[in-house]
Write a protein that binds this DNA or RNA. Structure first.
Length: 573
RNA sequence: CGGGGUGUAGCGCAGCCUGGUUAGCGCGCGUGCCUUGGGAGCACGAGGCCGCCGGUUCAAAUCCGGCCACCCCGACCA
């Protein structure tokens, strides 16, 4: 492709409405343009990159035994009512009406459609296992789309669905997808980590998220520095700790703490460490209010509370509820003397003695309080979020926190949809059973954004070659010079003939402009054809990632570019 | 949906508070000259429903009201 004909409008300045780096660079590099909030057009460069991610995904999905299909984007409400999600999904589901006033939606996901498809034609265990996937546009009407391709409303997703006759088979399908995903992201040239994720009410450890490591990621990944334990923040377990030896309990005392409502304030005012405070959070749940006790320096993990209490949703209670439940105002809640409310405590509390708690009265805290002596706890559990340096729940090593971007999710669905939608098969024993399902998603467009978040510098994008729109660019520089132009053209044709996606910057621009654009759009290798080196029969090969320049004889440039592309490795930055 | 902010040329912005000739600047775009190893220089030029609707006024980009769009923070996010 010749640059003079390429539709890639690059920008010198950051567009005002872009906040994160991938969004800015995608716009500046002329890869995408916004149509409306959370909805983007892919220009040639953006679409080429997208297609490369798609192609890698296809190859690995096919290799893993999955088959590609293409399902409708517009779906009838009947299917969603059958699965029960029409009423549950909420405003994120884009609902439409056709001319006959029939309700439809634009698919945010395809469990309903695929389950319907499979139940019609799959009757026997002999037809299982089956794994079908598609790459398609999804629409989720997010409350607040942001960050360009990172969280659009319309986006490209690869979604796969597996159907198995047995639990073992379902686990095997899951494993195959897990492996395929690892290969896909590795082949894309990305640094990533599969992490355990909370699987919600279905239970089990059958959910993993694939996280691209990037300092700007929105999600926090917890990983062990000794073993391969890795989980997201919601799921990461805190290693059970031994109860402390019971010291001789002191006698609790009420003290005045005027206006001291936060842990920091109380800690400073009474001159005690936050670790010696207990914070008492009042939560509202569908089965009434609950008091949760945490050590002062720890943070609540709502998912863990939901799982322990087996409730659907929890939220922090408002002032009014707190006053009703504890008798005191917000900021002074404590477990001593609490009546008629379930008290659950993080396991860490078990080991504490002589702590400070709220007095359930304005401007009052209580010091020298001892669990089990001065108050009772109904249930203990792991209720806090992991912090950097916590011991690994598996091996005792040290846990580290890193930022990441979720690009893939593998999930064991079980029989949720097959039962609701009557997707059954006849087993070898003659019994009708629901199929066991799994679903597996990759945010294809988000992967591009994540790749940029992970790989960029001040000059622009540093695309890993497998997903770069073009692998190389030939840049003739210097005054109009027939020999330079001719050599550049020949090198370009040569690279092209050897199957390398190559650009020729044939624009009548000054060298600086060409260099800036090549860097901005992230072409992995640049072949500069200029006067100085050409006098020795050589051209320059520059690595976008390392910025290293190598002088190469014109006749050897194809080999040098190929070698560079093949030996490319992601560098943590 | 709550809080904050912004809509003026393709992009980035000034002008608005304190209404008044022809609405500016930088980049980009076109033409010419010149220049050519990291976003050059000069000259000329094209390009505007000043977000939309209504109101106040002799007069509105500017003041008032309504609406719309977009961005940020929060709640939310297979």
């Amino acid at each position: 492709m010749k640059m003079s004909r390429l539709f890639a409008p690059t920008l010198k300045e950051d567009p005002a409405d872009a906040e994160v780096i991938s969004h800015k660079l995608l716009l500046r590099a002329g890869m995408i343009r916004k149509l409306t909030a959370g909805v983007y057009s892919y220009l040639p460069l953006g679409y080429r990159s997208l297609r490369k991610v798609e192609q890698i995904t296809r190859e690995e999905m096919d290799a893993a035994g999955a088959q590609e299909v293409f399902l409708p984007a517009v779906q009838p409400s009947e299917l969603w009512k059958e699965s029960g999600r029409w009423d549950v999904y909420g405003p994120e589901l884009l609902r439409l009406k056709d001319r006959h006033d029939r309700e439809c939606c634009f698919g945010p996901t395809h469990e309903e459609v695929i389950t319907d498809l499979v139940r019609r034609d799959v009757r026997s265990y002999r037809d299982l296992p089956l794994n079908l996937y598609q790459i398609q546009t999804k629409f989720r009407d997010e409350i607040r789309p942001r960050f360009g391709l990172m969280r659009g409303r319309e986006f490209i997703m690869k979604d796969a669905y597996s159907f198995d006759a047995t639990e073992d088979g379902a686990e095997e399908s899951y494993r195959a997808m897990w492996d395929a995903y690892s290969r896909i992201f590795a082949r894309c040239g990305l640094l990533f980590r599969p992490v355990e994720a909370d699987s919600g009410p279905i239970g089990g450890s059958f959910s993993h998220e694939f996280m691209v490591l990037a300092a700007t990621g929105e999600d926090t990944i917890v990983s062990c520095d000794t073993c391969d334990y890795a989980a997201n923040m919601e799921k990461a377990q805190v290693r059970a700790c031994e109860p402390a030896e019971s010291k001789v309990p002191g006698t609790m005392k009420r003290v005045t703490t005027p206006g001291m409502t936060s842990i920091e304030q109380v800690s400073e005012f009474l001159n005690v460490a936050p670790q010696d405070l207990i914070k008492t959070l009042i939560l509202r749940t569908e089965s009434g209010p609950v008091a949760v006790l945490l050590r002062g320096d720890h943070d609540l993990n709502e998912v863990k509370v939901r799982n322990l209490l087996n409730v659907g949703d929890v939220e922090l209670a408002d002032e009014w509820t707190i006053e009703e439940v504890t008798g005191g105002p917000l900021g002074f809640s404590g477990p001593v003397g609490l009546q008629g409310i379930t008290v659950v405590a993080d396991q860490t509390i078990r080991g504490l003695t002589s702590v400070v708690v709220g007095g359930n009265e304005a401007d009052v805290h209580i010091v020298d309080v001892n669990p089990h002596v001065d108050f009772q706890v109904d249930r203990y559990g792991d209720l806090r979020s992991v912090v950097q340096g916590d011991p690994c729940p598996r091996c005792g090593g040290t846990l580290r926190l890193n930022k990441g971007i979720e690009v893939g999710h593998v999930f064991k669905l079980g029989v949720k949809y097959s039962e609701a939608m009557n997707a059954k098969f006849l087993d070898s024993d003659g019994n009708e059973k629901p199929m066991i399902m799994g679903c597996y998603g990759i945010g294809v467009s988000r992967t591009i954004a994540a790749a940029i978040e992970q790989n960029h510098d001040d000059d622009g994008i540093i695309f890993p070659p497998p997903i770069a729109p073009f692998s190389a660019i030939v840049t003739p520089v210097g005054a109009k010079d027939t020999e330079i132009e001719k050599t550049a053209e020949n090198v370009y044709r040569d690279l092209w003939a050897h199957g390398i996606d190559v650009l020729l910057d044939d624009r009548d621009e000054r060298p600086g402009v060409k260099f800036k654009d090549a860097d901005l759009i992230g072409v992995p290798f640049r072949v500069t054809v200029g006067k100085k080196s050409l006098a020795q029969g050589k051209v320059e090969l520059r690595d976008r990632q390392t910025k290293e320049v190598e002088l190469v004889e014109v006749s050897r440039i194809v080999g040098a570019v190929k070698k560079g592309l093949e030996s490319w490795k992601p560098i943590p930055r």
